[in-house]
């Protein structure tokens, strides 16, 4: 399975993260998004006329939407992550998958503007991000009241993976996550999942690894 990938893209990271958790090996094909704008070149446009990445190719199947890729990877190798135990759960997963592009447009737009100099109305992007983050915070605080750490049902789902990266990287676009305690704890729960991998700007949980033993034979001092 081949992923057309960019190391700094939160959407590509969603797919890498889900694959790592599901134990699916990806053949990564780096795309020179910045500074090369390779995603707008003919070979990539031939695969995805929209000129966006990620692109996931598995045999004859070509997917160009990250949420569909999450669904595909989960259905293949980690069906519990589809979160379809009940009709209501299934609908809520769909709800969050449909919500996630708002995060991409707002938090992601602010990040591209501030970090990679892409055009945009930064004030409007941040205001729109604040509205989306407030909705997410309210939903997660309601989940915590019921003893749950994730967006849908009792276990993590593709809904969490779809929303996590652009939220975690919101500070890259000058958006402070300080006002969102439930989001902070939810991100921590995701970072603590078995198989979790990081991307630049999202640090691993150093606390999860035990205090390393001192080096034997090391020359201190």
């Amino acid at each position: 399975m081949k992923l057309y990938d960019y190391i700094l893209s939160p959407s590509c990271y969603k797919v890498r993260l889900m694959a790592a958790i599901a134990g699916v090996k990806l053949d990564l094909r780096p795309v020179d998004f910045h500074p090369g704008r390779e995603h707008k070149t003919d070979p990539i446009l031939a695969l995805n006329p929209a000129g966006t990445i990620p692109i996931l190719v598995d045999g004859a199947l070509i997917l160009t939407e990250s949420s569909a890729m999450l669904t595909y990877l989960a259905a293949l190798a980690a069906p519990g992550w589809l979160g379809d135990a009940t009709p209501a759960d299934r609908a809520q997963v769909e709800q969050w998958l449909a919500f996630s592009p708002r995060l991409t447009a707002s938090c992601g737009g602010a990040r591209l503007h501030d970090m990679l100099l892409m055009p945009g109305d930064i004030g409007a992007l941040r205001a729109s991000a604040t509205r989306a983050l407030r909705e997410l915070e309210a939903a997660l605080s309601a989940r915590r009241r019921r003893g749950h750490s994730f967006l849908v049902g009792a276990i993590p789902t593709i809904a969490d993976i779809a929303c996590f990266p652009y939220v975690a990287l919101a500070p890259d676009g000058g958006i402070d996550l300080g006002p969102y305690p439930s989001i902070r704890l939810w991100m921590r729960a995701i970072r603590g999942l078995p198989g979790f991998i990081e991307m630049p700007g999202i640090h691993r949980l150093h606390e999860a690894s035990a205090e390393p033993a001192p080096e034997i034979g090391g020359t201190a001092g």
Partner: peptide
């Protein structure tokens, strides 16, 4: 400054 439930054991918050 914060709520106890929002700073569980083993975590830091601003």
């Amino acid at each position: 400054a914060a709520l106890s439930q929002d700073v569980p054991a083993g975590t830091a918050a601003p």
